[in-house]
């Protein structure tokens, strides 16, 4: 990497704060480094802080989508935080939709979104959840006319 972008730990997430004008090779290097760090740290989330970034063109915009997609495959969620208003206006006019990318106005809101997304993912990993005592309604019997499973008999 010709220009270092530090990747920091923030609880169970990784925090990347882009502070310099990145050339395309740096952007690709950052994407690879993030993939490696998600795996090596077992991070559940990635926060990309772009509050110091004065333009987002199609190349860096595509990187956000790629990181969001690849983190999802690696069992993590990504949130991009701190986009400047002028950057947002330009992105929309450029026609860039940032597909699959979650955004938040600032770090605090980004962290909150990440916490929620990570919590939503938990059940899928927790094979015991089917045994939870929480009420459930069968899709083919919404009124619950059939007998419900009796938790005490398990």
């Amino acid at each position: 990497m010709t220009q270092q972008v530090p990747v920091l730990r923030l609880g169970d997430a990784l925090l990347v704060s882009i502070q310099v004008d990145l050339q395309d090779d740096d952007v690709l290097a950052l994407q690879e480094e993030l993939a490696e760090r998600i795996v090596s740290t077992g991070a559940r989330g990635v926060i990309i802080d772009i509050s110091a970034v004065d333009i987002v063109d199609s190349f860096i915009g595509r990187m956000f989508s790629s990181i969001a997609a690849l983190s999802r495959v690696l069992d993590a969620e990504t949130v991009v935080v701190g986009m400047r208003p002028a950057v947002a206006i330009t992105l929309v006019e450029l026609g860039l939709s940032l597909e699959g990318v979650r955004t938040a106005l600032d770090l605090e809101k980004g962290r909150a979104i990440l916490d929620r997304l990570i919590a939503e993912r938990r059940p899928a990993h927790d094979l015991d959840y089917l045994d939870d005592d929480a009420d459930y309604v069968p899709l083919d019997d919404p009124a619950g006319e059939r007998a419900r499973p009796d938790p005490s008999r398990r």
Binding site: A86, V87, T90
Partner: peptide, 8 residues
């Protein structure tokens, strides 16, 4: 905003 559009 115009600076940002032009630079982009």
């Amino acid at each position: 905003v115009d600076q940002t559009k032009l630079v982009t």
